[in-house]
Design a protein around this nucleic acid. Structure first.
Lengths: 228, 228
DNA sequence: CATATATTGATAGTAATACTATTAATTTTG
DNA sequence: CAAAATTAATAGTATTACTATCAATATATG
């Protein structure tokens, strides 16, 4: 719970936006409807002009909040990871048994978001789908090193690091806790994607969830005599 | 070796291109220099106009080979996966011990390409880098289901399936061989990317390679009494 | 409550992208 | 060497990804 309280409102690096979208009605509308529109037509076809038409607002007004759609994607995905981190910390905080704690953590980061909190303007179910379909595009760029230096990915990194810490708590001898944490986080998005589009490349379906698979994967690696 | 011989020339689905780039000098130049240019400026900034300038050829001539740059990316990545598959099959074919075979297979798909074969127009080292940085973009699209139906990803799927078969050979009781195979294949690209851009999210570096990590991960999961 | 200030909207404009079409020049092949 | 195929050159369109300017409207403060 150390650095989480200050982030209750999901504290997003303020260089990602030009004007805080949480600070106005228009800003919130931009966030709310960009999620709906990106889900509908995909990030590649998404433009500020189309978003403006959707919310009955001017393209130029949207440009006052975000430099470009890439920055908006960074905003949305940062919000998502911050929201997931909040759930992770809140839910696992009270668990003292390290295995049980890690188990719960994997459950939270690998499950599909099923219900929208409905009292904010953010639809978490659709946002989860956007993260599955588009998150990679936010870092697979030529600008990634500069943007990383600017701190645009710090929430995601902090989240992966929390999982790494929980892995180490379970087995301090395990040699690849960071890679395992990043494999689960990114691999979970990938397995969800495969389930929806390449069913021949995954065992996950209605019965077997990515959660089942990753819990098995992680605990097979920890406290294992083969593990040298 | 069943279906590999017909693919010696890397048999790419002929709906990916309008005219086979292997059939002419210009076609080969398009492939050769698109690899150099995408590596240099990234796929997002890459255009047929820039490529035309680079090879002293007209934009419209390139459009006679590929409908658009997305199709060119599908071509390049298919070629890469076909080339890797060839190495995989060729190298593991003679190994009778199933564990040793799987071990070698993981080595082949997770290692960084270090040398260019140099007698073709394709620079495999740069192509490997392109696959790491851009492959996800070829399927994270709204058209993925149609393109999958058209068979544009069949080489990749066949490769993952070969690894799945090898996993099952080692442990027929393991429940998630397909997910494990796709996790290794895609996770390897991801760990290479992290190593280059997010070193805090991976244990991989000069000493620990993705190969080391994934061999440990896979064999910890197989023939393991925890594996219920 | 009046006025200064900030925010948003409307319109216009630019350079680049992602193509298509046409015709001319060049190369290949039969 | 002539016919066919390929490539190059040029032009043109619609869309994208912005920037600039100014008017309209909302909001804040004194």
């Amino acid at each position: 719970m150390k650095y989480i309280l200050q982030d209750l409102k999901v504290n997003i690096n303020n260089n990602i936006y030009l004007k805080d979208p949480e600070s106005s009605t228009l800003g919130k509308k931009i966030i709310e409807f960009s999620i709906l529109l990106i889900d509908e037509i995909g990030f590649d076809s998404f433009t500020f002009k189309k978003l403006g038409e959707k919310i009955g607002s001017n393209e130029s007004s949207i440009y006052r909040y975000f430099e470009n759609k890439h920055k908006l994607l960074l905003y949305l995905t940062s919000w998502y990871w911050g929201w997931l981190e909040y759930q992770l910390v809140f839910t696992t905080n009270s668990i003292s048994d390290s295995k049980e704690k890690l188990n719960k953590a994997i459950e939270i980061i690998t499950r599909a978001t099923k219900e929208d909190s409905s009292f904010s303007h953010i639809n978490e179910v659709l946002l989860n789908k956007i993260v599955i379909n588009e998150y990679s595009k936010s870092y697979l760029t030529k600008e990634v090193d500069n943007e990383n230096k600017e701190g645009y990915f710090s929430i995601y990194k902090r989240l992966v690091n929390r999982i790494k810490d929980m892995i180490t708590e379970v087995d301090s001898d395990y040699k690849y806790p960071t890679s395992l944490a990043s494999t689960v986080t990114e691999g979970s998005l990938h397995q969800h994607f495969l389930k929806d589009h390449f069913s021949s490349l995954t065992d996950c379906d209605e019965k077997i969830t990515p959660t089942t698979y990753f819990i098995n994967l992680v605990f097979n690696s920890l406290n294992n005599q083969k593990n040298d």
